[in-house]
Amino acid sequence: MDWVTIISTTVKAAIGVETVLYALAAIGINVHFGYTGLLNFGQAAFMAVAGYGLAVSVTVLGLPFWVGIAVGLAAAVLLAIILGIPTLRLRADYLAIVTIAAAEIIRLVFRSVAFKDIFGGSDGRRGFSNGFYALNPFPEGEYGFGWFTFNHRVTWVLVVGWILVALSCLIVYLLMNSPWGRVIKAIREDEDAVRSLGKNVFSYKMQSLILGGVIGALGGFIYGLAFASVQPDIFGTETTFFAYTIVILGGAARVLGPVVGSMIFWVLLVLINGLLSGAVEAGYITFMNSTQVGPVRFLLVGVGLILLLIYRPQGIFGDKREIAFDAR
């Protein structure tokens, strides 16, 4: 087994592109679920409309890069409003049902044959990221130190990505330590109590849905730009559920929970992948072949999530006392 490669790819995963984009998606979920108590199971849709908003604006409409970003963000805000108006007045479960269905509808529209001219069907869209890489201040070459070495394109994506993660965390931190955040957390506990104290609960839930959706949309941009393409099936329901796993792993309603959760999630995923493929190739494991390694590692993720919920439901940063009061 090639231990150096296994360990170096694992270490790289701690700050890699997947970590960044899932951290952003999870920060959004944390705003929805962790702080506000909104069960948004359609985070992938927010990422998708942002990624496709950028891609279609640039490739199909020929608009500049920055306009594409604006279109993507506007699409995420619009999606939040459309999802929120009918559901936010109802119980939390309805939002869960509507968001998961809406996310699938959006994915299927993007991959449909009827709209192939616009969204590119199941192949998706590519060739929209030149505007982004034109801004790259790093000349061609390798950057970093030790195992953390990336080429100039990835370096640029990571720098921008981590700046976005830091900004998102800062905004969440400021908001959640303000009276606004107090109302949001109170809504998670009991909406009627908050209404009886003169706060417009619907408006706050809508603001939260938009904020978390827009942060998730940033993850959609990072995906599109890092891989220079968007495909519909990247934005399936499992993307949303990975984000939920990350939030619970890091600890819900903690500012840095999703970031650390995302790092651990991807380090473990890459490490298990490396170890299993290495072991299969070296003949230590004979009951599966190398193509089965991919599904098996997600199977292990599921087992890990179950164990986590049993033994440490508050996550890494969580406070166990808070879980004890959650008698609903």
Partner: peptide
């Protein structure tokens, strides 16, 4: 309807208009 996972003081502050 005490807001369980907020502190007593935060519960109070929430009431201000």
């Amino acid at each position: 309807k005490a807001l369980s996972r907020l502190t007593v003081l935060e519960n109070m502050r929430l009431g201000a208009q």
